[in-house]
Design a protein around this nucleic acid. Structure first.
Lengths: 238, 238
DNA sequence: CGGCAGTTTGATGTTACTCAATTTAAGTGG
DNA sequence: CCACTTAAATTGAGTAACATCAAACTGCCG
């Protein structure tokens, strides 16, 4: 099997560093046998796979399914910081930090790929491409966090949920073929609540309104967007 | 004058890349004359010095005074993303992005230092120290943004303001000598409101409570912390 | 002294939370 | 395939937190 050609029989071809941001950079060194700096795992839905302050020698990429990063609060609530979709690094910070500053949970069944941090850092030192990709990832993380801060700080429940959906739509679309504005969407209302800082009860009411007004509808793990223009009017920051 | 010894006569010795994160990395190449890749400016209080989507060839460091990054919303409100203190890069993202994704305003009179992005990137490629410092800065930005998201999403007015103060205290202390728990603090209540997503009226009420209960007191540009333990109980995320 | 920006206070309104009950959907074992 | 169980979503009533509007108060500067 050639290292430069697509490796269709390997389900992890586009995973790990090949994933999110480093997909291309590592291709030339990807091989089936000697890759002991990289390993894969399957995790069932609902399982917590990383904990705040936990030390890890590895940097993780989500390869399949959905997960999320979160903070657990002492009062029992939690804040979902963002959702992880296939090819996402858990966080670009973990390339440099040996501890997670967040926790991670599997939302659906997921596959993850872990790589030795030491190995990644060694490659960073000599490979400008990886560095560039990593910088891009950092920039994207920072910009997304700034926007989410804005949505949370100054906006109503409808606007927050609208923003969340708008933010997720292109990310989902980049990872699966979308027909008729139907997006795969495994979130429970509780997840939405934890992500935008509302109670599940209130989320339910807002989603009810969206449905009545023919804007978005959630059911059976699918988000159906009937009126994107209106959703953008509601959720967009501009 | 020696390049390796402290350069006390130059008010910008510890500014620019010498500032925030790159202080040490650039020391050997700092010189008074030929530094045309670096320039300094003084800006009066209240002046806006960067606008969202504006293109800039330069990367900026705040050298003196306070500023803040923000998003302007169409409804007239604004969200302050964070406050900039001396030696802060406006954002580590601007080392890689030619446009600001945020706006910046001077809160007090400030001095800023701008450096050519191209120059910085060239140095990044050959200087591991700078890279490490930059990565640290990115990590810190990301962690702070995650925490602020949590504070905004899941917490009450008192907790948000408490969190903001707790977050600022060590940053201020790192930049000036603190005696008797009195911190220089140039924010108006409107700034606090814009930062934590409350109305100035409500901020005033909460600050009134803090004062009554002998926790913190703001006046004449000084924050006096009388009961740090209680402030931590209120504002800490843990 | 007058004017302005910032803060405080009061009265009232709205949004979202809480608590509790009901309905719907999703599994599970027989 | 159907009773049973459990989780998720919906609905309603009452409440708390914060917003809004408006007025009074403070300190500062010309």
């Amino acid at each position: 099997m050639q290292t430069t050609s697509p490796c269709v029989t390997c389900p992890h071809r586009d995973l790990g560093f090949c994933g999110a941001l480093l997909e291309n950079s590592f291709e030339e060194s990807h091989s089936h046998q000697g890759a002991n700096w990289q390993h894969h795992r399957r995790v069932p839905a609902g399982r917590q796979i990383a904990t705040r302050n936990q030390v890890s020698e590895d940097v993780f990429v989500l390869c399949g399914g959905w997960g999320f990063r979160f903070f657990q609060l002492p009062n029992g609530r939690r804040k979902i910081l963002n959702f992880l979709l296939p090819r996402d690094l858990f966080s670009a910070t973990s390339v440099f930090e040996e501890r997670f500053h967040f926790s991670v949970e599997a939302l659906t069944e997921i596959q993850i790929s872990g790589m030795r941090r030491a190995e990644i850092q060694a490659r960073l030192a000599v490979n400008l491409g990886i560095l560039t990709a990593l910088a891009k990832s950092f920039v994207a993380e920072t910009q997304a966090a700034d926007e989410m801060q804005t949505a949370l700080g100054q906006r109503s429940a409808e606007e927050r949920i609208g923003y969340l959906f708008l933010h997720l739509i292109p990310r989902i679309a980049a990872r699966s073929v979308i027909r008729e504005q139907r997006y795969p969407f495994p979130l429970r209302q509780q997840h939405i609540a934890d992500a935008v800082g509302l109670t599940p009860v209130h989320v339910s009411r807002v989603l009810g309104l969206f449905r009545e007004r023919g804007i978005v509808e959630l059911s059976e793990g699918v988000m159906r967007v009937s009126n994107l223009a209106e959703l953008e009017r509601i959720g967009s920051l501009n």
